[in-house]
Nucleic acid binder design. Structure first.
Lengths: 128, 128
DNA sequence: TGAACATATTCGCCAAAGCAGATATTATGC
DNA sequence: GCATAATATCTGCTTTGGCGAATATGTTCA
């Protein structure tokens, strides 16, 4: 369902024309703690897959998939060298994005941490 | 919540001091198409809950929860007026964040859309 | 008081997606 | 060729979380 030119008013800043689902997917890639940690590790510099495995402590398969996901989304780029595969951040704006999110999140840390609408209400529901 | 294994990475550009899980949560809030659409709608200006319901076409309960979630995360702020509740974007940096993500996502639109690691590879998946 | 309205919360259902472990692929060396 | 190492993909299992519908809370007015 394409709704053409909804308002055209006060939002020259955002397209609204392009796919919201795609951008949501883009955000969702960083919505997982493991991937975000991987990305931050790579913001530190180029690292091989096994470096990443050692750093975050997940299974090799999981890490490989996470890195591939970050690469698909354009956050990082892979460089093959023999049997090794090195990943590095693909665009300097990625650091900007993360820093901006950090700043915003920090300004609302308390409420964010308490937000039960994301991440489950509690271990188990016990009505009172 | 799981233990966020205390990354000892050397990351001068990013705070690193604060919890990765919290920032991931922050990103995750925009990782849902419905919430992202709501946020974009609010970037257009202040709107009531029922305005939002009419705009995105989800159930009233869902919209209310999504808005509360965005508020918890600090993206928007609520203003009560009688029976109505108006939501508006809480910080100008939110627009920056979304625009930056849009720009990055646009530069990698093809691969991002094709990324099956998020959103399902599946036999025959179908998306709205 | 109660009815009508706007919003918030709860409930069961089910798809999306994280995880480890097994396996497949590719590259190097013997 | 075979063995080994580094990475990629597949297979189940389990949790997270979005959804509508029902319900609860709160507000205004008669």
């Amino acid at each position: 369902m394409s709704k053409t030119a909804r308002t055209a008013s006060v939002t020259p800043l955002l397209g609204e024309g392009d796919d919201v689902g795609t951008v949501a997917k883009f955000f969702r890639a960083l919505g997982d703690p493991s991937r975000l940690r991987l990305l931050e590790f790579l913001l530190d510099g180029e690292h091989s897959v096994s470096d990443c495995v050692a750093h975050i402590g997940l299974s090799q398969g999981r890490v490989s998939t996470h890195l591939a996901c970050l690469a698909d989304c354009g956050y990082v780029r892979a460089r093959r060298e023999g049997r090794w595969c090195y990943y590095r951040v693909a665009d300097p704006r990625v650091a900007e994005l993360v820093m901006l999110a950090r700043a915003l999140a920090a300004d609302n840390g308390a409420a964010l941490a308490a937000c039960e609408r994301i991440d489950g209400p509690e271990p188990h529901r016990d009505r009172a």
